[in-house]
Structure formats: C-alpha cells, structure tokens
Simulated scan of single mutants.
Amino acid sequence: MKGAARRVAIEVGGWALVLVGIAALVLPGPGLLLIFAGVAVLSQQYEWAEKRLDPIKYRALKGAAESVETWVRIVFSSLVAVGLLVCGVIWIWSPEVPDWWSFRDSWWLPGGVATGITQIASGLFAFVLLGWSYRKFHGKPEAVAELEREIDEADEEFKQLRD
C-alpha cells in the first residue's frame, strides 16, 4: 500500500506544480520554476519527465537571468513583490466592503486569511528569487554565456533522445 500511496502523491504533487506553474506564466509568479519543480517530481516516476528536466531547468534559469538584466526589470519585479505583500496584508486585515464596490459583498476579498498568507508568502518568495538572480547573474555576462551554452547542450541532447 505504501508504494501506491507514494505513486499517487507523486502524481498529484507533480501535476499540481505543473498546473500552478502554467498559471504562473501569465500571473505573477515563478512559472518556469514551478513547472521545473513539477517535472522534477514526476521524473521520479516517468522517463519522459526525466528527459525534459534539463531543458526546462535551463529555461527557468534563463528567465531568472533575464529578470535582472536591467534596472527597469529589477524595479518592476520589486514593485510586483511589494504589491503582493500589500495585498496580503489587506486580505488578512479584511476591511469592510467599500461603498464603491458594485459586486456582491461575498466577492470582496475572497479566500480570507488563507489568501492573504499565500500572497505574503509569494511576495517574500519573489524577493528571495530576485535576490538570488541578482547575485548570480546581474553584471556577470560570463555566467549568462555559460547558461546559454548549457541550454544549447541540453537542447542537443534532447534532440538526440527524440531521434
């Protein structure tokens, strides 16, 4: 029974991370990192996931490098993280429904404290990722060039596996 429970946990956890990662590609969040984490979990069970792990990992790292290429991107990412923190505090504080709110009252700040905690956690996670990306890639063209070489190698290996 333990084996079946582990298999279900890997399936559910891996696919949940992939789906949240796909959503985070268009919403604020580390989409490629979440997809990578989901595929890494699924690679414990599936050979197809293991084969795709390196190309996804390197694309996620490339996204991290690009996020700190310019000060405009760094400032924008920081503002988004601050926005998440502020929204989380507002959700937890849960002020009364304002007069200008034209929808049903139940639609005001849905999810309550749990949503607020998630937003604060996302904001803190965004700052940690931004700091890590800055230290690893900002002003270091050799690190970005090395990453691009690794992406090319991973793509070539993946093509050979498909052929």
Rank of each mutant, 00 (worst) to 15 (best):
W91C: 01
K159F: 14
L34H: 13
G63S: 12
Q45R: 14
S102D: 11
V41H: 10
P141I: 00
F103V: 05
A5I: 13
A64W: 13
F103Q: 00
G3Q: 12
G21R: 08
E148Q: 06
L27N: 09
A37C: 12
A16M: 14
G38Q: 12
Y46A: 13
A126R: 03
V39R: 06
V26Y: 07
G29Y: 13
Y134C: 04
K2Q: 14
P110N: 06
E146W: 11
S106C: 08
A40I: 05
D163H: 07
E69G: 09
T70V: 12
S67D: 10
L33V: 15
V12W: 12
G111Y: 00
G3S: 07
V68S: 02
V20P: 09
E11I: 12
A114G: 02
D105C: 03
A121P: 10
W71M: 09
I90F: 03
D152V: 12
G14D: 03
G88E: 01
L33T: 10
S133I: 02
S78M: 00
V97S: 03
G29D: 01
G111N: 07
P141N: 04
G131F: 01
I74W: 12
F36Q: 14
V18T: 06
L53Q: 01
G29H: 15
V72A: 07
A154T: 11
L32E: 00
A5M: 15
L34G: 08
I90R: 01
V97Q: 00
Y46P: 07
L34S: 07
A4C: 14
L109D: 11
A121G: 15
G131Y: 07
A4L: 05
L147P: 03
A60T: 05
G31E: 03
E146C: 06
P98S: 14
G131W: 09
T118W: 13
T118L: 15
D54C: 15
V89T: 05
E150G: 08
A60G: 04
E142T: 12
I10V: 01
L33I: 14
L161S: 12
